[in-house]
Design a protein around this nucleic acid. Structure first.
Lengths: 143, 143
DNA sequence: TGATTTTTAATGTAATTGCATATATCCGTC
DNA sequence: GACGGATATATGCAATTACATTAAAAATCA
């Protein structure tokens, strides 16, 4: 918890100081950009990022309002939509990366060897693998 | 980030399902209890938990309102106060622990060997050692 | 087919967090 | 022993997040 709070605070602080959007926007933009021209469905994003559905819904509202993504109708599912990248979104993500990267380096790279960082990534990965969204957290309990 | 979100969501979900306060209360209560009968100063808590000052201030408001800690005047510093445990606070912390422990086990213990868990703790510790509160994040930037 | 359940996404409202700033005390120094 | 700055804590207000619920389309199935 503390390591996460520190890393997050450093990154958020740096992004803000640079007049850029918060970190979570980066993650969304990265996923959406990676998804290609057809974008992806909110529920896919939800699973990739492990965000709660209602948080993601409003997060997308904000990112869309800023013009970095667009919501398109989903052809094959009337309930759904596809989130696609805009040029402005691509641009802002590229602007964010150097700041983000610098803070990753400060918070992590500079404190661990390459080998240690890899081990850390592997161990944290084990905590995530096969797990599902927070929404399920309270329900998972009863299971 | 994802590992933290998952672990936190599981723990919060379990605590809530048990009708208990959120995880961060546990951490506060633990620190305060450990500090002994004289309690500790909010700024010490802030540093121990790496919480922002204004968040901690209000967090203490809530925990105090629930009757789990008390704010006492600080003899040797007129600006300050001492946060001390109440009996109700000790009781609730003890109630929270088994739930918390079970979720730690589910989220981490069950997914890592004892050795791996130790390595993880060590590596995360390296990310925290010698670092300071989030408040400093934006300022640390310019430094 | 039509009823029932599940999935996808949004939203009203309450709680929390973040930001900026305020207030009071303390400390060093001149 | 008054002054300027630093430290400790609180708070008004805006933004975000959590909770509970809703709405609508799909999937299941009797």
């Amino acid at each position: 918890m503390r390591a996460q709070r520190l890393a997050l605070a450093s990154i958020e602080g740096a992004l803000k100081a640079a007049g850029l959007p918060p970190l979570v926007w980066y993650d969304v933009l990265l996923e959406v950009e990676r998804a290609g021209p057809d974008g992806l469905r909110p529920y896919e994003l939800e699973r990739a990022m492990l965000l709660a559905q209602y948080n993601l819904s409003r997060l997308i509202d904000r990112i869309e309002a800023a013009g970095y993504v667009e919501r398109k109708l989903c052809a094959d599912d009337g309930r759904g939509q596809r989130i696609v990248m805009t040029d402005a979104g691509k641009a802002i993500r590229r602007q964010m990366w150097p700041i983000y990267a610098r803070e990753i380096e400060r918070a992590i790279g500079g404190r661990l060897s390459a080998e240690q960082a890899e081990v850390l990534g592997d161990l944290l990965g084990r905590l995530v693998d096969g797990r599902t969204v927070p929404k399920a957290a309270s329900k998972a309990l009863s299971a």
